[in-house]
Write a protein that binds this DNA or RNA. Structure first.
Length: 460
RNA sequence: UCCCCAGUAGCUCAGUUGGCAGAGCGAGUGGCUGUUAACCACUAAGUCCGCGGUUCGAGUCCGUGCUGGGGAGCCA
């Protein structure tokens, strides 16, 4: 007989005879002549309580079941006589699939996140991490649903790229060169004899690819892994993360912000509605204000202010910041936090940044000193989204490349798109892990990705 | 990469002025009970992060390295 997932059993409206459930033992309480065993199969947060009595032929073994063991039970789903759960299973037969030794590292008590990080292969078996990764899965689906409902096409941008600079951060090199004996020319490594005949890297953004497809399919998005070789050690950075990057043709900066705001609200609403059981765990144990924080995001209108105004607010605040702020300087973490956590107390979109602190592809504004960039800042997380209207004018783009010291040759195909039927277009990148941090109240990004990769850490 | 904090039983931690290594939880054994963070009793469990130094004596003081955490920079 086929097993029924615990999630479905617990949703049952009526008792059900002869069901089969399989899962892992979370806890067990022995009575004189029977045992309460709670099993979890990962289909939901809740455990299924099963009652095994001494009439079972292998009851002596069942009495010795340990936390973490795997079992299959068959029996009747009946209304529970005890308080605390609606349903339980009166067992007719139980198979012990595997018995976990008492060295099983997960105990029937709360563990610290730091400890669980050292056993990242086992932590999805805990309530909290099970919930995080169910929510992560649901959010991934919601992203695709959001874009599909709006007529966007999903683009698989390459993970290995030949662009030697896309304007963002340090790159991971991809090579098959033998480091013991590298091919050399004029004393330097000869990448023309490397696998691709040139230097290659892991992608830091799918944006340039997405732009090419936006200029063909209209509205597109990418959603995939992204790599940064930066030696950053913070609770908001990992070396490998997932990024969502929509790109829209015939779209200016303000419409770009509209999409960003709509998307964050859609995804937050989705989690509130579809993951309410898992979400309750975070409200209870992680962040007491989580529910109201999320409702605030859904209901409030994001504050939109030009960079110049943001700087004025910061100067007038009278706050003693560690870093001085004035026009031309990038906003520091403390500035972002002040704006979104203290001054506006809701998500803030800062736009029209000075051109000297932003990459070459952002569209130059008429004032000639700012570009059509926008960042969505949210309380606690900081920058959740970074985006811009792209420079669609060939001559401006070429001079911006020159100013930033990048070679036109490497971008010939990118420039081609401005040569043939160029149109105003915009897009942004959303850090998927930061979104999960936001909706679950999780403080460390390493806890919302299955096996985090950070400087000096690639175990598992 | 820089600044700050921490590292003691499986986990979370206490450890006085430098003077015999401790608790709670977990685990094991037994008991009790429609239990649910079960309860009661007993038992086992330690390279006090590594190396070097000061001292009659170091978990404790000094130096150094490693690991983890927080903050900053960079960014999503």
């Amino acid at each position: 007989m086929h097993r029924i997932k615990i999630h479905n059993l617990l949703k049952s409206e009526t008792p059900r005879a002869n069901i089969v459930a399989k899962g892992w033992v979370r806890t067990k309480r022995n009575s004189s002549n029977f045992s309460f065993i709670e099993i979890n199969d990962g289909s939901c947060l809740e455990n299924l309580q099963i009652i095994a009595d001494e009439s079972l032929q292998n009851y002596e073994d069942i009495k010795k079941l340990t936390t973490g063991s795997a079992v299959a039970v068959s029996g009747n789903l009946i209304e529970s006589q005890g308080k605390g759960q609606k349903w339980e299973v009166a067992v007719k037969a139980m198979e012990i699939i595997s018995l976990a030794p008492d060295s099983y590292p997960l105990q029937k008590k709360r563990h610290t996140d730091e400890y669980l990080r050292t056993i990242a292969h086992l932590r999805p078996r805990t309530n909290k991490y099970g919930a995080i990764f169910r929510i992560r899965s649901e959010l991934s689906f919601a992203i695709h649903r959001f874009f599909r409902e709006k007529g966007f096409r999903y683009i698989h941008s390459p993970i290995i790229t030949g662009s030697d600079c896309e304007g963002a951060g340090e790159l991971f090199k991809v090579t098959t060169i033998d480091f013991e004996n590298p091919p050399k020319k004029d004393g330097k490594i000869d990448y023309s004899r490397d696998f691709f005949g040139t230097e290659a890297n892991l992608t830091v953004s799918g944006q340039l690819s997405a732009e090419m497809f936006a200029l063909a399919l209209g509205d597109v998005y990418t959603f995939g892994p992204t790599f940064r070789a930066e030696n950053s050690n913070t609770r908001r950075h990992v070396s490998e993360f997932w990024m969502v990057e929509p790109e829209m043709a015939f779209c200016d900066l303000y419409e770009d912000v509209d999409i960003a705001e709509e998307m964050i609200k859609y995804l937050t609403t989705y989690v509130l509605e579809e993951c309410s059981d898992d979400l309750k765990l975070f409200t209870r144990f992680v962040d007491k204000n989580l529910q109201s924080t999320l409702e605030n995001i859904v209901q409030s209108e994001f504050k939109r202010i030009p960079y110049e105004e943001a700087v004025e607010i910061l100067i007038k605040s009278g706050k003693n910041f560690n870093f001085d702020i004035s026009f031309g300087k990038d906003l520091q973490t403390e500035h972002e936090r002040y704006l979104t956590e203290e001054f506006f107390k809701k998500p803030v979109v800062v736009y029209n940044y000075p051109k000297n602190i932003k990459p070459f592809y952002m569209r130059l504004n008429d004032d000639n000193k700012t570009v059509a960039a926008m960042d969505v800042l949210v309380p606690r997380i900081g920058e959740l989204i970074g985006g811009s209207q792209r420079e669609e004018r060939l001559s401006e783009l070429e001079s911006r490349l020159n100013e930033t010291g990048l070679s036109k040759d490497n971008y010939w195909w990118y420039l081609d798109s401005r040569r043939f039927g160029t149109v105003p277009h915009s897009g942004f990148g959303l850090g998927f892990e930061r979104l999960i941090m936001l909706v679950t109240g999780t403080n460390n990004i390493r806890d919302v990705i299955p096996f985090p990769r950070t400087p000096n850490s690639i175990e598992f």
